[in-house]
């Protein structure tokens, strides 16, 4: 029997040459998966002048960086990037391939999965390796792709038992970034880029990118509001409390959808994952997608009028009541103590 490749590959995403945090987070996780699989962790770096970036992946445990460096590849474009990865996977057949669930990753991964007929699971919140029995057949060392499903009412474990390459995307911040104390002595392997007419079907005309000013991930205190704040005006209370405590404002997906707050401040599975010192959840019922993004906070205060709300399940302190009355009370008491 042909020996199966057990390698874990991570697509290393860069924008204007700057790596995305999620790629290092995935390498940190991929290192553990590769160990469990008895395989090697490899990074796939595509871009222009990306040698330094490729070497940086050794700090996270990649033993090899597969590099495709060409001036035509500076900016991400679907056609050349997917074509390059398709060919690499077809030839080398890694066991696992991980992508960030960024706009680039969500554009690229499905196209690659379609071509290589791989299984692909989006927005995983956890990845593990385990032996699995499925339909009375035993499978060794499958990738368990764990994600909330159906409005967050269930947690599903997805497997791709009969394919060579198991693929998954993971949101930024979900996995922890864990550099090694001493980086491994990795190998750079350059792959030549051969242009193809299909690469030119879509041309980049212009691009505008702003550094994200909001950095929820680094905030020690976060005050977050949910749809239960009812109006945008009420949501100002969240802002007031956050300012007073020296924290950042955040919201749930429902609050973002209702227009109370911008998407860049959304906490949860489809937003940012945070681990602050203090998280105050105001009028948030606590759907699992939201909890997935905040339950590792050091201390959580939940304020909700429904004593059965799931948010209390992850809270350290619970206050049952209407957040719109309780936040001003909190603000007053805190101001008195400051005097």
């Amino acid at each position: 029997m042909e020996k199966l490749n057990k390698d874990v590959w991570v697509f290393v995403e860069q924008r204007d040459g700057k790596p995305a945090d999620v790629s290092f987070e995935l390498l940190s996780k991929g290192r553990k998966l590769a160990k469990n699989l008895n395989g090697n962790l490899k990074s796939v770096v595509i871009g222009h002048d990306v040698l330094a970036l490729a070497e940086e992946t050794f700090r996270f445990g990649a033993v090899e960086a597969i590099v495709v460096d060409h001036k035509e590849l500076g900016h991400y474009r679907t056609m050349p990037y997917s074509r390059i990865i398709n060919q690499l996977i077809e030839k080398e057949k890694p066991r696992v391939m991980l992508f960030g669930a960024t706009i680039i990753g969500r554009d690229l991964a499905p196209r690659v999965a379609s071509y290589t007929k791989s299984g692909l699971t989006a927005d995983c919140t956890d990845l593990q390796v385990s032996d699995v029995q499925y339909l009375r057949k035993d499978y060794k060392d499958l990738l368990l792709q764990i994600r909330p499903a159906f409005g967050g009412n269930i947690i599903a474990t997805i497997i791709s038992p009969d394919v060579q390459t198991q693929m998954a995307t993971v949101r930024e911040g979900v996995m922890r970034m864990e550099p090694l104390e001493k980086h491994v002595k990795g190998k750079i392997r350059n792959i030549e880029y051969t242009p193809d007419p299909v690469d030119e079907l879509v041309k980049l005309i212009e691009q505008h990118r702003q550094e994200n000013k909001v950095n929820l991930k680094a905030a020690p205190i976060i005050v977050a509001g949910g749809y239960g704040m009812r109006t945008k005006a009420n949501f100002e209370l969240i802002r007031e409390l956050a300012d007073l405590l020296g924290g950042e404002v955040a919201g749930t997906r429902a609050a973002v959808d209702a227009g109370f707050i911008n998407h860049d401040r959304q906490v949860g599975q489809t937003g940012v994952t945070v681990r602050p010192k203090l998280y105050i959840a105001c009028a948030i019922s606590g759907a699992i997608q939201h909890r997935a993004g905040m339950q590792e906070a050091n201390k959580i205060i939940a304020i909700n009028s429904d004593p059965e709300a799931p948010i209390f399940g992850v809270a350290h302190y619970g206050i049952v009541g209407d957040a719109i009355e309780i936040i001003p009370r909190f603000i007053n008491v805190f101001k008195q103590k400051l005097r």
């Binding site: 007929k117 791989s118 299984g119 692909l120 699971t121 699995v132 499925y134 368990l144 792709q145 499903a149 269930i154 947690i155 599903a156 474990t157 997805i158 497997i159 791709s160 038992p161 009969d162 394919v163």
Partner: peptide, 8 residues
């Protein structure tokens, strides 16, 4: 290729 192995 993807199968639901477990639902909790």
């Amino acid at each position: 290729p993807t199968k639901v192995h477990k639902v909790e």
